[in-house]
Design a protein around this nucleic acid. Structure first.
Length: 286
DNA sequence: CGGACGCCCTGGCGGC
DNA sequence: TGCCGCCAGGGCGTCC
């Protein structure tokens, strides 16, 4: 379940192993992997040929490979189970190999997009003058972006008629936060997921943002979280931050602050993990 | 128009 | 043992 730290680990891997290489050819093995490219897999593959890959960028959970001197970029979203692997040509095809990109050099490696659940995908888009693919203009800056505006985020929360976890997962307000890091940051902030955002004070918002950044930086420092074998970084190496999680997946286990058994509640077709003592629900459920 | 929710997809796993 | 249903969940289309 790649969120911002995992995607950033992948981006760094691509910068190391793929940047500045020229595409020889590409191959799309599953149409759903390029469903955001309306002209289809063959067209997608053909349009990459001959272009040199620039330095990979990221915003939230999206990452993209600029194609030099084209005004375009290959946009990638890993969804829930997507992986970008750099593999030797002769490595056997992964069971869920969806796209393969070969390069016009003698390094002997190729880029592979592998995705079991096919929620992720690749697509090709025009970029705006600042380099951002046009289709993700609506994605907010992420909390590790130096240009993220804390004050504007606070004002947006105050304006919204919604609850705090919904807001954290709203990629148009703040990007890169998924279910795992939302629960972790809320636990650190002693905030219940159903707290209305309109009541958050400026110090509470600042504290929440601080915890989001802390937990993401901690995950980055150890190479991203891996909850199961589905997430593997660009070199095929699993992260191991899951050992440090304080909330996510800890139903029934003692809260690391107060020892009260942690709870799991169904929430928006997924789960929220929280401590019933440290994270008190709002008096009136909105 | 903003907020809420259903759907897309596959495989592991628990229960019967 | 085999089968069924649940669960994981990001993003977007659609509905109210």
């Amino acid at each position: 379940m790649p969120e911002l730290p995992e995607v950033e680990v992948v981006r760094r891997g691509l910068e190391r192993w793929v940047a500045h290489r020229t595409v020889a050819d590409a191959e799309v093995l599953h149409p759903r992997a390029v469903r955001r490219h309306p002209a289809g897999g063959d067209d997608f593959a053909r349009r990459l040929q001959g272009y040199r890959v620039g330095v990979p960028s990221r915003r939230g959970k999206y990452l993209w490979l600029p194609l030099a001197d084209s005004g375009q970029a290959v946009l990638a979203h890993l969804g829930m189970s997507g992986q970008l692997l750099v593999q030797p040509h002769e490595a056997p095809a992964e069971k869920h190999l969806r796209v393969r990109v070969r390069f016009a050099d003698a390094l002997g490696t190729e880029l592979r997009f592998v995705d079991q659940r096919t929620f992720g995908g690749l697509s090709l888009h025009d970029t705006s003058p600042d380099g951002l693919p046009d289709v993700i203009a609506h994605i907010a800056r992420d909390p590790l972006d130096p240009l993220f505006d804390d004050e504007a985020f606070h004002r947006a929360l105050r304006r919204k008629r919604t609850t705090v976890k919904r807001a954290l997962l709203d990629q148009s307000l703040i990007s890169g936060v998924g279910n795992i890091y939302a629960d972790e940051a809320l636990w650190r902030s002693r905030l219940h997921y159903d707290r209305p955002t309109a009541a958050l004070t400026r110090p509470r918002t600042a504290e929440l943002l601080g915890h989001i950044r802390d937990v993401m930086n901690a995950a980055l420092a150890v190479g991203g979280t891996s909850f199961d074998s589905l997430y593997v970084n660009v070199n095929g190496e699993s992260g191991y931050f899951d050992r440090s999680l304080d909330a996510y997946g800890r139903e029934g286990l003692p809260c690391r602050r107060c020892a009260t058994p942690m709870r799991r509640r169904p929430w928006m077709n997924r789960s929220s993990y929280y401590c019933p003592r440290c994270q008190r629900p709002p008096r009136v459920t909105p």
